[in-house]
């Protein structure tokens, strides 16, 4: 069972209480953007075998979206952080670096 810490509730939550929301930190493109940008935003995904930054929603809890850094090859979770982040915060990057050292 995948367990993530909801940064809003501060609680460790089973995956059955969560909804996965796909890749995080996508840059939005709207009207006036090129086809290439719009295609990348809507459809193209990193889908890495390794560290993945992703969106989750604590759907059977506080209902809020948050972000997580997780390894898709080992299922190791490096940490969770606020959905209001435009890029992974330093403490998450440090945790990844430490785990991979």
């Amino acid at each position: 069972m995948l367990i993530l810490n909801c940064p809003y509730c501060g609680r460790d939550v089973d995956e059955t209480d969560l909804h996965a929301g796909g890749e995080a930190h996508l840059k939005r493109f709207g009207p006036g953007s090129s086809d290439d940008e719009f295609e990348h935003y809507l459809f193209m995904r990193e889908n890495p075998k390794g560290v993945h930054f992703e969106r989750w929603r604590h759907v059977y809890g506080c209902g809020k979206w948050f972000l997580a850094a997780r390894n898709t090859a080992t299922l190791q979770v490096y940490g969770t952080y606020s959905a209001q982040s435009t890029e992974p915060p330093q403490h998450i990057l440090d945790a990844i670096k430490e785990a991979q050292a």
């Binding site: 069972m1 995948l2 995956e15 059955t16 909804h19 996965a20 796909g22 890749e23 889908n47 075998k49 993945h52 992703e54 997780r70 898709t72 090859a73 080992t74 299922l75």
Partner: peptide
């Protein structure tokens, strides 16, 4: 399927 990206060839028990 599970809802999240995964390369481990094992899925969620639930």
């Amino acid at each position: 399927t599970d809802g999240y990206n995964n390369y481990t060839q094992r899925g969620s028990f639930h």
